[in-house]
């Protein structure tokens, strides 16, 4: 009884924390002025927001759904793994579209890969093996 009470309170707190972080992240997405700073804000939605919702769902199903469920951990780990990759791709799109300031030059190469244009004297593309 007291355990159920604590579990329900934990569920409610997790829901509130998740909704606060979702709101903060999306307000940042709307309010920030630069493309790269806008990239920073919605990561809160993806990690803590959905993470807290999934934690609430786990605790709730441990009380009412008959035992702990592992599927939420799967969703959570998938989101946590794929968020940096998509953020990296969107940052590369911003650089490619010149939507941000040019970053300082890289140490080992002469320019960034997305800024690199093909040289004029490239060999003719092999049209037969297309």
């Amino acid at each position: 009884m007291i355990l159920e009470f604590i579990a329900i309170i934990i569920v409610a707190l997790c829901l509130l924390i998740g909704s606060i972080f979702s709101l903060v992240g999306v307000i940042g997405l709307l309010k920030f002025e630069d493309s790269m700073t806008r990239l920073h804000a919605p990561t809160k939605v993806g990690t803590i927001g959905v993470g807290a919702f999934l934690l609430a769902s786990m605790v709730y199903s441990s009380v009412y759904g008959g035992g702990w469920s592992i599927q939420e951990l799967l969703i959570m780990s998938f989101l946590f793994v794929t968020a940096p990759i998509s953020a990296n791709f969107i940052a590369k799109v911003n650089m490619h579209k010149r939507a941000c300031e040019t970053p300082p030059p890289p140490v080992n190469d002469e320019t960034w890969a997305t800024y690199k244009v093909p040289e004029d004297n490239l060999p003719e593309p092999d049209t037969k093996s297309a």
Binding site: I90, V93, K97, A99
Partner: peptide, 8 residues
């Protein structure tokens, strides 16, 4: 920009 739309 395009990046903002993809992010949204």
């Amino acid at each position: 920009g395009t990046g903002d739309r993809i992010l949204a």
